[in-house]
Computed example of a mutant assay.
Amino acid sequence: MSDLPKRVSIAEEGPREGFQSEKKMIPVADKVRLIEALAETGLKHIACVSYVNPKRVPTMADADEVAQAIRQKPGIEYSALWLNQQGLERALRGPLHVDGGVRVTASDTFSKKNIGKSVADALVEQRMSLKTFKDRGMPVEWGVILGAFGCNYEGELSTELILHRVQQALDEAELAGFKLTGIKLTDAMGWATPQSVYRLIGAVRSKWPELEVSLHLHDTRGTGMAAAYAGLQLGVTQFDASIAGLGGCPFAATDGAAGNICTEDFAFMCEEMGVETGLDIDRLIDAAKVAEEVVGRLLPGHVMRGGTLKAAKAKAAQKAAA
């Protein structure tokens, strides 16, 4: 276990991961309003839409409209998610950034629920996407293991299985002429705890010490922030988060599926521990309030209500001086 990193990078997932789980349709203008509020916070990566089947995820039916409506600021990567070749082709026709990568779902059941294909079939189809990246000269540097910490359908997943999935990602990339430099471990199911983060990252690094590891954690069972802190202790410097804790995977098989760890809460914690994020916490709070306005309900973020310690200290000092 190492000292905490000096700086971390936080990628915003709220507009994509968040809106996909909403039961009501969110107007395009409101989605864009949140994305543009996030662009004022110092974030360098904002996931905006998913190019997925609108019958399965109705709130992403307007992905093309949202993508076209965003007024992109220089220096920010506005991205689109895709899950199959059809989605990739739609994404490539649009104005948003498309990441080249290899995705492997940890459990076969979650793969069928989330993607509509078994792990084996999804890997075969993904070879078309990798060929597309190769033909276009697009880099493929990251592998993503979906549901790496456990499965609400199949239960506990062995470390050996996850290492096998990482190897599959590496093999598929190599087969297509790419070499992965990093692995993102994701937890849409909300199973990650500090102990499982230590165990799984330790196992990955033991076998592939050259690979960078990033984390995409959810807070379904209230352990997301603790798991993120464990990641910090291990020197992880790349995290996904969601403004105000917005979101949740619609195929995670739990009524309490929560969004990613809350962006402003995680950024606040990092900054208070001396870990730089490059983010403006006050503007993140403003964006979190926009997120609540857009969805029309309270969201689980804490700092947006409690405020920063800087503000609390200033208020206390004023009272003491009065």
Rank of each mutant, 00 (worst) to 15 (best):
N84C: 03
V197M: 10
Q86W: 14
M273C: 10
K313A: 12
S196E: 02
E154R: 06
V294C: 09
Y153H: 10
G150Y: 07
V290C: 06
F178Y: 14
A241D: 04
D30R: 14
P139S: 05
A176N: 09
A188Q: 12
A311H: 12
I201M: 11
A61M: 02
C249Q: 07
I243C: 14
L81Q: 04
Q126H: 15
W191A: 12
L81P: 02
K134C: 00
D121C: 00
A322E: 15
A169L: 08
T41W: 04
L309Q: 12
M273P: 00
A316H: 11
E12L: 03
L163R: 09
P209C: 10
E17V: 05
F19H: 12
H45E: 15
G137C: 10
D108P: 06
L200H: 03
A120L: 10
K179Q: 14
E272V: 00
G101K: 15
S118K: 11
G296F: 08
G18W: 05
R56D: 04
G116R: 09
D265L: 12
L180A: 09
M60N: 03
N114W: 06
T41C: 15
E212R: 13
E141C: 00
A287L: 08
A80M: 04
A230L: 06
A37C: 02
G87P: 05
S206Q: 15
E156N: 14
T193W: 07
V52D: 01
N114T: 06
M1T: 13
E156L: 14
G307D: 05
G18Q: 10
T105P: 15
S2C: 03
L200W: 01
E22Y: 05
G116E: 04
K184M: 13
E172L: 13
G137T: 09
K289Q: 13
K319Y: 04
I10C: 07
F266D: 01
L279S: 06
R297T: 08
G245M: 03
T277Q: 10
E160A: 15
A252D: 02
G247V: 05
K112Q: 15
K184R: 14
N260M: 13
L130M: 06
D171P: 00
A227R: 13
A61L: 02
A122L: 11
D171Q: 13
F19Y: 13
E210Q: 15
R103P: 14
G177E: 08
E172M: 12
F178S: 07
G235Y: 08
E293C: 07
S242I: 01
T263Y: 04
I76V: 14
G18E: 05
G296Q: 10
V295C: 05
R205H: 14
A227P: 08
I10E: 05
I70P: 07
G278I: 03
S9E: 13
A67C: 09
E22A: 12
E160M: 03
H302F: 12
E12C: 01
L81E: 03
E276Y: 00
S107Y: 05
T237S: 13
K55P: 00
L34Q: 06
E160Y: 00
L217S: 08
N53A: 08
V119E: 09
G224P: 04
